[in-house]
Structure formats: C-alpha cells, structure tokens
Design a protein around this nucleic acid. Structure first.
Length: 369
DNA sequence: AAGGCGGGGTG
DNA sequence: CACCCAGCCTT
C-alpha cells in the first residue's frame, strides 16, 4: 500500500508531468503570476475556496464576480456579510462565503499569514486550501490533496482505496521540492482534464509508463467508488406574500442556507408526498408563525410544487400565495435583487412568475384579476 | 469517524 | 433518469 519511498521514478514523473503542464496546463484567471513567479495570495485563496466544491467551468464566473465586487482583502473585510453572500448567490455551500468574510476580518486585524500553519488557522481554510495558498503564493513545500490528486495517485500506484493518510504520504513523496506550486497545479490539471473519473484519457496522459492502473488495463476501476449516504426526502410548504420580484423574505439561520434570505417555509421529513390535509396543516402552522393566524378567510392559492436536490436531501415544496385582492398583511416586502437567495428560493419565485406570465401568453383570462 | 452542507454534471 | 463529484466544519 505504501508508495515506494523514495519513489524511484519520481524524477521522471516530475519532469514528464511538468513538461505536459507547461504545454497543456489550463490558463485560469487566478493564475496571474507576479515577477517573482508566485501567485497573489488573495486571488489564490478566493479561487481555492471557490473551487473547493465547484468545478472550474462554473467557478470562473463566480470568481470574476467576486473579485470585481471585492478586489482586495480589505474590501472584502469591510463589506457587509450580506453583500458577500449576494456575490456568492447560487454557488452553494454558503458557509464558504461566510468564512471568507470572517477570515478577511481576521487578516485585516492580524495580517495576512505567510505560512501553511498560519493559513490553516483561518476559518474555512483546511489542509487543502492552506497547502494550495502556501505552495502557489509563497513557494512553501506543501503537497495539496484534493479529489483530483487522490484519483491520480490512486491510479499511479493502483491503490483502489486511497485513505487520507496514504494519499497524503504519496503526495508528499511525489511533490517536486524545487517547484511545489507548479507541481501541485500540474497534478490537479491532469486529474481535471485527463485522469478524469470516468473514461480517463490515457492516450493524452504524459505518465502512462509510470501508471500501474494503466498497466492493469482497467484504469477506470481506480479509485473504488465511495459508498454514499442516502438522500433524505423533505417535504414542506412555502408562502409567497407580495410578488415574485418583491416578496416578503425571511433571513434563514442555522447551517442550511444560513444567512441567505428566502420565502417562509415549513418543512417536514416525510417519505411520501404530503396529503392535502397535511399540506394545509403545515400551511396553517406557517401562517401562525407569520402572525397571520388571526386573519379570517385568508385565502391562498396553490401555485405548484418545486423539486430541489441538495445532494443529501430531496426537497419537494408546495408553494402557496396569498390571493390577489386579499388584504396585504403587515409584512415588509423586499426586492429580491437586494437580498441573497438560494436557487431553491429562486425556483419557488419562478413558479409565481410563470403563473403570472403564462396565462397571458396563451390568451387565458384567468391570470391575476 | 461520520454526517451535514449546494449545486452542478454525465451516461 | 440514476448516478457521479467533493473540502471543511460540526457533532
């Protein structure tokens, strides 16, 4: 299981991969190089946090948006958290944005760390991100271990279950001590573009002579697939007061979409779809929470249901709206452009938008009175 | 050590 | 449509 130490072919592997990287490496906006050949720590940090769970193709858009909004750590630190979340809107795993903001505050107070250990102490910075910033921006000899690197190493040594300990040791042993930053980027680029999870493009790989998975004839068998947690079914109801562009919004708290704003929702864990009775009961609880329980004959219309997957949860939310013409309760309405919303909430609002637009498009008279 | 946390992609 | 990806934090 252990990689040979010292790995006999390391020198050849390094030169082959770095040669490939020089020719085939990706040109990415956060790879701006200073005169000293090093990356800007702020840009690297933002990019690496963004790429923690986001693919490069999508990350680019958010990166540009984020850097335009917050060009420096000072600008990020003095912005309100809500503005940071707005720039992150739709990107998911919003704790990353909250932690970026917190960490920026720490750096303005205490200075920008220059070492792996210093970066590791910041909120939202784990071993991967600390190693990336330390190596790319400061030239520190730290091997990154992300999903790409783990897969490349798993195949290189034909280890089908690469544990954290094994993979980190293998990455450390292979790291090019003279060019740690370039080496780290090279391994990750190989994993992202050639040594991909399914159908690896071994014909384009610079390391076939060193790859034991390639030698086995079935490189795609490495690493073995991970067992996944089951997706929990969550049902619920949401209530739209106001319009899709200017609804009543609540700020969510807790870990799920915390800090973002959205329609008031009442969620329940249920294996099967809610009956209309259960739906109405949930809606009543929601009204009560909003202080609408006292109002008699508060009519709502059911706009439809929204399905939304969040990796670990499958949400199915019935969206209701106060009927037009009903007295508007005393709840503040806010333009959605002024608040960060999750995609779930944008979907629910789109339902109201469709409800308003489509009848007119098809010439029905049953739209808003 | 295990589970929670968004949002995508592909076959 | 089922199944894939994935770093950090909390518990």
């Amino acid at each position: 299981m252990k990689p040979p130490a010292p790995f006999s072919g390391a020198t050849e592997v390094r030169s082959a991969l770095l040669g490939w990287f020089a020719a085939q490496g990706r040109d990415l906006p956060w790879r701006l190089t200073g005169d000293d050949g090093r990356r800007d720590p702020y840009r690297v940090w933002v990019a690496e946090v963004l790429l923690q769970q986001t693919q490069v193709v999508r990350g680019r858009v958010y990166y540009e948006r984020f850097l335009t909004a917050f060009p420096s750590v000072q600008a990020l630190a003095r912005a309100p958290q809500e503005a940071v979340l707005k720039a992150w809107e739709g990107c998911g795993y919003y704790a990353r944005a909250r932690n970026l903001h917190r960490a920026a505050g720490v750096m303005v107070e205490q200075g920008v760390p220059r070492t792996y250990e210093g970066w590791l102490a910041l909120p939202g910075v784990g071993p991967y991100t600390a190693a990336a910033v330390a190596s790319l921006a400061y030239g520190e000899r730290r091997a990154v271990l992300d999903g790409n690197v783990r897969r490349v190493l798993s195949r290189l040594y034909a280890v089908s279950v690469p544990t954290d300990l094994w993979a980190q040791q293998a990455a450390d042993a292979l790291l090019d001590p003279d060019r740690p930053g370039a080496w780290n980027e090279a391994v990750m680029d190989l994993g992202a573009t050639v040594c991909i999870p399914k159908s690896p493009r071994c014909g384009e790989c610079p390391l076939p002579a060193h790859c034991q998975a390639f030698a086995s004839g079935e490189p795609a068998r490495y690493p073995a697939p991970k067992v996944r947690a089951e997706v929990k079914q969550v049902r619920g109801v949401a209530l739209l007061v106001g319009t899709s562009g200017r609804p009543y919004l609540e700020q969510r708290s807790g870990s799920l979409l915390g800090g973002l704003w959205g329609l008031p929702v009442e969620l329940v864990q249920a294996e099967s779809a809610l009956t209309s009775m259960e739906e109405q009961a949930a809606l009543e609880r929601l009204k009560l929470r909003l202080g609408l329980g006292q109002i008699e004959r508060l009519n709502t219309e059911r706009l439809g249901t929204v399905e939304h997957t969040m990796t670990h949860r499958q949400l199915s939310v019935a969206v209701f709206r106060l009927r037009i013409g009903e007295a508007v309760p005393d709840l503040p309405l806010t333009p959605v452009t002024e608040r960060p919303l999750s995609r779930l909430d944008h979907k629910m609002l789109a339902l109201a938008e469709a409800d308003r637009v489509q009848p007119a498009l098809f010439g029905y008279g049953a739209g808003e009175a």
